[in-house]
Design a protein around this nucleic acid. Structure first.
Length: 195
DNA sequence: CGGAAGATCCTCT
DNA sequence: GAGGATCTTCCGG
């Protein structure tokens, strides 16, 4: 399958941003693959995503809004950031209320020197090959939770179509069999290969 | 290279 | 008080 929705590369803003995200999280997760993400000048092509839903036991929104997951019930195109295992941050983009896409990996293109410094490695394929690594590389933390993607420090734009593959989501125990993980087929910049 | 285990800290039960 | 949408290191094969 190919991402056919990608035309042009101007940043998604305002009503365009809203229209892109106000859809089924699976469609959004698929269409985000190959998009270009910048955070404070660091970023690149999104290579791996996962979709989460309110009716999905693996989702933080499964039991309704709480203090922690509040941003997940914000407007389409909102950013939801949470701490995982007491050590790392994870980045999500909100779709319809309580639905979101976890950004799991990207191919570095901009601000690589800063990523190398923050990650402590110069191996390009290991800078953003996982949700926690990606946040460390892009200097993402809770300070920029609950903001829209068309405002600083964020910028997101569509890019050229890429070949898409899918599989089961990573690191969960509940609802673990659904194929709601998406990625660039054959990319070297993934958290794990697709089977 | 694959599996195991430890690090570490909230939030929600 | 348990349990994570993770990562790194260490160990064995």
């Amino acid at each position: 399958m190919t991402n056919t929705g990608a035309i042009g590369n101007a940043p998604l803003t305002g009503s365009d941003l809203r229209a892109f995200f106000e859809r089924d999280a699976i469609a959004v997760a698929r269409d985000l693959i190959g998009c270009h993400l910048l955070v404070n000048g660091s970023g690149g092509l999104i290579t791996e995503t996962e979709a989460y839903f309110p009716h999905d036991e693996a989702s933080h929104s499964f039991r309704g809004p709480t203090k922690r997951n509040g941003a997940m019930f914000g407007p389409p195109g909102n950013v939801y950031i949470y701490r995982i295992y007491g050590m790392y941050w994870c980045l999500n983009f909100v779709c319809t209320p309580g639905s979101a896409v976890l950004i799991r990996a990207l191919e570095p293109q901009s601000g690589i020197a800063g990523m190398i410094e923050r990650r402590g490695t110069d191996v390009l394929t290991q800078l953003c090959s996982g949700p926690g690594k990606l946040c460390q590389a892009l200097d993402i933390d809770i300070e920029i939770n609950n903001r829209l993607l068309d405002r600083p420090p964020f910028s997101i734009s569509r890019s050229a179509p890429v070949p898409i593959t899918s599989g089961t989501r990573i690191g969960i125990t509940k609802n673990a069999e659904v194929p709601w993980r998406f990625g660039i087929q054959g990319s070297r910049y993934l958290s794990k290969p697709f089977r």
